[in-house]
């Protein structure tokens, strides 16, 4: 290709990039605006929040919202509980779901079909139907009002969907790769460790992220199973900034919600690189 032709292609690409970047920036603003609004609202005084015309930026930095939630509302303890619960649930779910998902995807069709149907059926029951029996069961095993009870419940709640997701990812990995590995003399474990697992990383990361966010945000099970303030999770603490008939303590709620968002963002920031990196771990050369 001549130098001129290359230049023209580059120019065309630049022209194409302008609207692309513009759209991406618009989308980022669209997604980020509520977060920005929440952040600036957390610095507004109660009177400022009663104004008809709300500005994006606060008149001053009213720090009392943060002081209230950190000193008087037990937000730090709740955040600690939420973090322990979400991390433990995510780790346990991944440990159970990866081999189980592989088994469901690779085992005989009859077993796979039955397992998939069973997973689907378990997702059909509404929470309100199972909450009292679940409550009794958790109580019977002595895990009521315990964060470990919540971990157990979240694990059970997260597993079906995690299995469903991972089954899809495993199914997408060609059997030919595993067979090629076997022909080269690799053991089953080696095939899993060196061929399947690297290709499954994006699926595991996506499943882990999904599980983490669900556990981090879950409200209803925590409401019912947690009794004492010491075991409260973040969503329970944040709900206490809302009253009946639409009343809300907007400043402290925004401050609490902003702080509660940070761990999710950090976890997502760390793990999202893995989402893409696994995709590059392909084994088939063209």
């Amino acid at each position: 290709m001549s130098t001129n032709a290359v230049k023209q292609v580059k120019k065309k690409r630049k022209l194409y990039l302008i609207p692309t970047y513009f759209l991406v920036i618009c989308y980022v603003i669209f997604l980020g605006f509520p977060f920005l609004w929440m952040f600036t609202t957390s610095f507004k005084s109660p009177y400022e929040l009663l104004q008809l015309n709300q500005s994006l930026f606060p008149e001053g930095f009213y720090m009392q919202n943060y002081v209230d939630i950190l000193e008087k509302r037990g937000l730090i303890n709740a955040a600690k509980n939420s973090l322990v619960i979400a991390v433990c649930t995510t780790v346990l779910t991944t440990i159970f779901a990866v081999p189980a998902g592989y088994a469901i995807a690779r085992l005989r069709k009859v077993f796979s079909g039955a397992a998939t149907a069973w997973i689907l059926i378990s997702q059909v029951f509404p929470v309100s139907l199972i909450i009292i029996p679940l409550f009794m069961a958790v109580r019977r095993v002595g895990l009521l009002d315990s964060i470990w009870g919540l971990v157990l419940v979240y694990l059970v709640a997260a597993l079906p969907f995690a299995l469903w997701m991972l089954k899809g990812y495993v199914s997408a990995i060609p059997m030919d790769l595993e067979e090629a590995g076997a022909m080269d003399g690799a053991s089953s474990f080696q095939i899993l460790r060196h061929i399947v697992f690297p290709l499954l990383v994006p699926g595991i990361v996506a499943t882990a992220l999904f599980t983490f966010l669900n556990s981090w945000n879950e409200f209803f099970f925590a409401l019912v199973l947690i009794q004492s303030p010491e075991s409260e999770t973040l969503p329970l603490t944040l709900a206490r900034f809302m009253g009946s008939e639409g009343q809300v303590l907007l400043g402290p709620l925004a401050a609490g919600a902003f702080l509660a968002t940070i761990p999710s963002l950090v976890v997502f920031g760390i793990m999202q690189k893995k989402l893409a990196s696994g995709l590059l771990a392909g084994a088939v050369k063209g």
Partner: peptide
């Protein structure tokens, strides 16, 4: 023990 006013019944 603080409860959530909107979920007291549950």
């Amino acid at each position: 023990v603080y409860g959530d006013v909107n979920n007291m019944d549950d």
